[in-house]
């Protein structure tokens, strides 16, 4: 009897130790990756990073054109993807909540959420690059918008559903048409959630490399024309990190640091934002 209790206790302690070790194991990688990025990146960050163009191998330069290209394509992707995503999320949460279409869209949307982004890149290549005959910033933005769409659909549906039904009922009782109710009341009530979803989606697409490889391609020079191939941070990081040139690798680490900071700050900021709302 005593032996069974002892055995059970030992097994229990062993399980606790292993679970704690597993958590430490997970956290070690986070710390290690962030540490590497910060140390390697800090060595290479300089004002020139934001004022000069991507250099040829062996000479100094910055990543200005890549930052600009990434920013432009992300802005366009958000401008196209967010309204569509919020509209679809609105259908799932409001008019179509219990419809068959909504159930199907919910299911497919969840799958798109985890779909391989490289396939989305090839898809946009097929529909926008091959037909146009050349790579372009527009194609890159379209690929990013397709990746952003399911994230916004999901988060906007969830935040619209959090709006209490009494609000809808009160508005109906006053004779307010549903579209006015949605736009003037529900969207306002769910604003934090909608913003949060969009910010999370931006964080996600800012580091997406695979879908840009065959759409925006790359550009060594300054280019503000979205109709032409455009430099962007992820593809530059890939190209430079894989290159044999020391100054390119250094620049890649500097870019990696900026990108990581951007993503981490967005993610932490979003969590603070939602936390504040939940508390209120």
């Amino acid at each position: 009897m005593n032996r069974t209790i002892l055995r059970r206790r030992i097994v229990d302690i062993l399980a606790l130790v292993l679970a704690t070790a597993a958590t430490l194991f997970g956290l070690v990688w986070l710390v290690w990756i962030l540490f590497t990025t910060f140390v390697q990146g800090a060595k290479a960050v300089s004002p020139a990073l934001f004022t000069e163009m991507t250099p040829p191998p062996g000479s100094a330069g910055g990543l200005l054109n890549a930052f600009y290209g990434s920013a432009m394509m992300m802005l366009l992707a958000v401008a196209v993807g967010t309204p569509v995503g919020i509209a679809a999320g609105t259908y799932l949460a409001e008019h179509g909540r219990h419809s068959k279409l909504a159930a199907t869209v919910r299911f497919i949307n969840d799958i798109l959420l985890s779909a391989p982004s490289i396939v989305i890149g090839l898809f946009v290549y097929e529909i926008a690059v091959r037909t146009a005959g050349h790579f372009s910033g527009y194609a890159g933005a379209l690929a990013l918008a397709i990746i952003l769409l399911p994230i916004v659909v999901r988060t906007s549906e969830e935040s619209l559903r959090l709006v209490p039904n009494q609000m809808r009922e009160a508005a109906f009782a006053l004779g307010l048409p549903r579209w006015k109710l949605t736009i003037q009341l529900i969207y306002k009530a769910a604003m934090t959630g909608l913003v949060t979803g969009t910010l999370l989606a931006v964080a996600r697409i800012s580091g997406e490399t695979a879908p840009l490889l065959f759409t925006a391609l790359n550009n060594q020079f300054w280019n503000a024309n979205l109709a032409r191939p455009m430099a962007n941070i992820p593809v530059i990081l890939y190209k430079y990190a894989m290159s044999p040139y020391d100054n390119w690798i250094e620049l890649a680490w500097a870019g990696a640091l900026i990108l990581t900071l951007f993503v981490l700050l967005l993610n932490i900021g979003v969590r603070l934002l939602t936390h504040k709302v939940l508390k209120r």
Binding site: L30, W32, I33, L34, T36, T37, A203, R204, S206, G207, E208, T209, P234, L237, Y238, A241, A252, W253, A256, L259, T260, V263, L264, N267
Partner: peptide
Amino acid sequence: AIPSIIYGMW
């Protein structure tokens, strides 16, 4: 949340 390209470089 860390972009996969960072994982790749690391």
